[in-house]
């Protein structure tokens, strides 16, 4: 499984992911002689250190250098959005760095190869499963399904009608088949679709192919794959704090044209 990003600092390195989910300041955020994170668990020495973006004092660049001098530098850096401080720290300390990577796709302990020349992050040993996901729309509302608590992936979460794409099957055909299997609803041509997106769920990376169908007046009849259904206005999806399969809200808003509303 290879994530494509942008090359920032040259070089190639392997390591286990240590992830911080928010903007990070090297000054004050890590001990420059040991690599221990400050205020949270973890040590970044020799690790592929992933966080969305840098913040804080420009002296942070020299903290990265300090780590390198002490033999405690991260093996590689992965950002969503590189800025001056972290980029400077990476380059002067010869730490490979890639940005434009969705940090949400990485988890602590992932075995990765970061290539700062080609701008890629390879996650080793992570299976990629292709799924089709469908927003079924009636009366301006989207059909949401609740997964059983015993489901192997995303237990208890609300999602769209979705399922694996069989070998040799077209994604759109898989989408229609899954809608029928899970809800008994027969749908025609999709009125919207999106390029595939990646969703991380534990030990699997899902490549999701989203489609949207009109099914005015349809009445779902669920099979064993889900336990409840609900019709929701696009803007209400996830708005009440219910657990969703990642990116469900974004996909719904984008396909129903309600993004930004």
């Amino acid at each position: 499984m290879i994530l494509k990003g942008r090359p920032i600092s040259p070089g190639r390195a392997e390591g286990r992911v240590v992830k911080v989910g928010e903007a990070f300041s090297f000054l004050g955020g890590v001990n420059g002689s040991t690599g221990d994170l400050v205020g949270r668990e973890g040590n970044i020495a020799g690790k592929a250190f992933a966080f969305p973006k840098g913040k804080g004092s420009t002296v942070g660049s020299f903290v990265v250098y300090d780590l390198m001098v002490h033999g405690k530098a991260p093996a590689a850096l992965i950002n969503r959005e590189a800025e001056t401080i972290v980029t400077t720290g990476a380059v002067i300390s010869s730490v490979p760095m890639v940005d434009s990577v969705d940090i949400g796709l990485l988890e602590d302990g992932d075995d990765v190869v970061v290539d700062g020349d080609s701008g890629t992050v390879e996650i080793r040993g992570l299976p990629l499963v292709r799924v089709a996901s469908s927003a079924v729309v009636s009366g301006g509302r989207v059909l949401l399904l609740k997964r059983p608590m015993g489901a192997k992936s995303f237990p208890g979460a609300w999602s769209l009608a979705a399922g694996k794409i069989e070998p040799g099957e077209e994604p759109e055909a898989a989408a229609r088949r899954e809608v029928f299997e899970e809800t008994g609803i027969r749908v025609g041509e999709p009125f919207a679709s999106l390029p595939p997106i990646l969703v991380r769920g534990g030990g699997t990376m899902w490549e999701v192919h989203p489609f949207a169908y009109l099914a005015e007046g349809a009445a779902p009849s669920l099979n064993h794959e889900n336990t409840e259904f609900a019709w929701a206005l696009p803007g209400d999806v996830g708005a009440r704090g219910e657990i969703l399969v990642p990116k469900t809200r974004d996909v719904v808003l984008e396909m129903t044209g309600a993004a930004g509303r």
Binding site: I8, S9, T87
Partner: peptide
């Protein structure tokens, strides 16, 4: 070389 790497990296971002 190191100086140029930094200029190029900053230019890129």
């Amino acid at each position: 070389r190191k100086a140029m790497e930094l200029i190029v990296a900053l230019g890129r971002i």
